[in-house]
Design a protein around this nucleic acid. Sequence first.
DNA 1: ATGGTGGCCCGGCCA
Length: 256
Amino acid sequence: MLIATWNVNSLKARLPRVTEWLAEVQPDVVCIQETKMADAAFPALAFGEMGYDSVHFGQGQWNGVAILSRVGLDKPRVNFASGEPDPEARIITADCGGVTVASVYVPNGRALDHDHYTYKLRWMAQLHAHAAAVSRPDGSLVIAGDYNIAPDDRDVWDPAKLEGQTHVSKAERDTLTVLEDWGLRDVFRDHYRDEKLFSWWDYRGGDFHQGRGMRIDLMYATKSVAERTTWCGIDRNARKGEQPSDHAPVMMLLGP
DNA sequence: ATGGTGGCCCGGCCA
C-alpha cells in the first residue's frame, strides 16, 4: 500500500498536475493539504472517476485538507477528535486499508514573536491529543502532512541562515519529540539516515534549482506501521515543469 | 537593498 502526502497549494490551480500525478504514480492513499477551496468546490467526481473515494475539510480561500483512498475510506472525522475544535480547516482523519490516516496542515507560525507562532505550538499539542484520541501507540496510525517544521538540521539547506526563524526553533522541534515519545516515528528519516533531502522549496529566487529547500512534509507513523514500511521517497519531479506546487509529494510503501 | 514568486481575489494578505 502506497501512502502519499502532498501540499498542492490550491487544488483548483493544481488539479491537472494532481490528476496527472495520480495516474502516473498510482498511490493508494493520498493526504492533500492547502486545497484552498470550499467543500462544494472539491472535485470528488474527478477523483471518483480515477477510482478514489475522498473526504475534504475545506473553508474556502485558505487551508483545506483532504484524503483520497482506493483501499477503502471509513469513519471520516473532520477537525480535532478531542478538545477545542480548530477554527481553521487543518486536519481530517479517516480509516483507509486498515490504517488510521490523518492529513494535517500545521500553522506556519510566521515569526517567533507572532501570535500565529503560539497558535502553532498550541496546535501541535492538540495534534498530540488527537493522536491519542484516534489510536493507541500500538495501533496503526499515520499522521502525514505539511508540519511546517524541519525536524533537525539535516532537514534544511543552510541551518545558519534560518536561525531565529520559524520551522527550525527548539520549541517547534520539541513538539515533534512529544509525538515521538508517544509512539510515532518519522518514517522518512528511518530510511535516509544522513541525506539532506527536501520536500519544499520557495518559489522565489530559483530556490528549487539552487537546492535551497527544507523537509517539512512529514509522515509520522506508529511502530507497527513504521516496521511495515519497505520504502520512502520524495517525488521531486513533481516540483518541476509547468505550474508546480512549491511542495513535492512524500511517499511511504507499506508491506503486508 | 527586507527584495524575490505565486496562491487567494482584485489591493493586500499569506506562504
